[in-house]
Design a protein around this nucleic acid. Structure first.
Length: 278
RNA sequence: GCCCAGGUAGCUCAGUUGGUAGAGCAGCGGACUGAAAAUCCGCGUGUCGCUGGUUCAACUCCGGCCCUGGGCA
């Protein structure tokens, strides 16, 4: 969500001061009305990572969107198709008109393997599977199989952070949201809405934006929206933990136990020792 | 002080004519290949306010007490 311009407070985008002269990439590379995607992220980020590596530097990929990070590291290809063909919209309209089970039946005929993996209630993935089939003539199952054969692009060291006690995580999230509100999240959301950014676009799905936008449009107090932002953030953080727990390569640190470091070198040394790396 | 209405899961509540209880939300766990801060799946976690009594059996019926909300003085 930090790729979107004009969405600074709610995405906790690092400030110039926080960046401390360290070059940050991929911030503000899209307008909020654009629909960014994993495929585009990989396409944009790979040249940047390669450039840093070619200069003998260490790229640091920071973020919580597991899907994006995994796909940057893995060498997978995405099924080719034109993003603005309107096919997805057509399929979604069919869901509305005919109901999801109808598309489900079609998927079972076309790609029983995918149908077995996708839950009948999962509209998003059902639509996507049909979209790949209809636009490429190849099933998403077939595509996935081929895609998995590609070797990884990079060899990462994955560092995951968690809290030893879940309530500490909640408290930190609450504080984070309070700070966003104090820094003017409401004004940021109102500005986006006023400039005509549609409430159903991808950028407005971001936590913090969709809840406040809904509260505003429904005439409810913004403080109520802020409470929802806290709740949705907690649930999102939990999903992030689930995602990274699956990655057995990750080194986990408990936030409460991370000692204070004097500088980056100190941190690296400690990290390397803790991880038992050479 | 008296009269009503309530005290059931973390929260809001349901619970048939007595057979030791169930929904939503929250929470916990999981999935995830061009929307992913999205989307989807699984799991009930309980001194039924307390205490006597009636009964084979009480969240359900009776007595007393405590607490909360409203009303009358």
């Amino acid at each position: 969500m930090q790729v979107y311009r004009r969405m600074d407070v709610g995405t906790a985008k690092p400030t110039a001061e926080e960046m401390q002269g360290v070059p940050h990439h991929m911030l503000d590379v899209a307008g909020p009305e654009e629909n960014y995607s994993v495929a585009r992220y990989v396409q944009d980020a790979v040249p940047i990572v390669d450039d840093i590596l070619n200069r003998g530097r260490l790229p640091i990929v920071a973020g919580g969107t597991g899907l994006y990070i995994d796909n940057l590291i893995a060498g997978r290809q995405f099924a080719p198709f034109e993003a603005d063909s309107g096919l997805r919209e057509t399929l979604r309209e069919r869901v509305k008109a005919e109901g999801l089970p109808a598309l489900r039946v079609q998927l079972e005929q076309v790609d029983p393997e995918a149908a077995a993996k996708i839950h009948p209630n999962d509209e998003k993935r059902t639509v996507r599977a049909l979209e790949v089939w209809l636009s490429t003539g190849k099933t998403i199952s077939q595509h996935d199989r081929e895609s998995r054969e590609a070797p990884n692009r990079y060899t990462p060291l994955t560092i995951a952070l968690n809290f030893a006690h879940r309530p500490d995580l909640w408290e930190r999230i609450d504080r984070r949201v309070d700070e966003m509100m104090a820094r003017g999240l409401e004004a940021e959301v109102r500005e986006l809405l006023a400039s005509g950014v549609p409430q159903n676009c991808t950028a407005m799905q971001a936590i913090g934006y969709k809840e406040l936008a809904r509260a505003i449009s429904e005439g409810r107090p913004v403080s109520e929206g802020a409470q929802e932002v806290k709740l949705r953030s907690r649930q999102y953080a939990k999903r992030q933990l689930t995602w990274f727990r699956r990655n057995r390569q990750a080194y986990w640190f408990h936030w409460e136990k991370i000692p204070v470091f004097s500088d980056a070198l100190d941190f690296s040394t400690k990290l390397i020792m803790d991880c038992g790396l050479q």
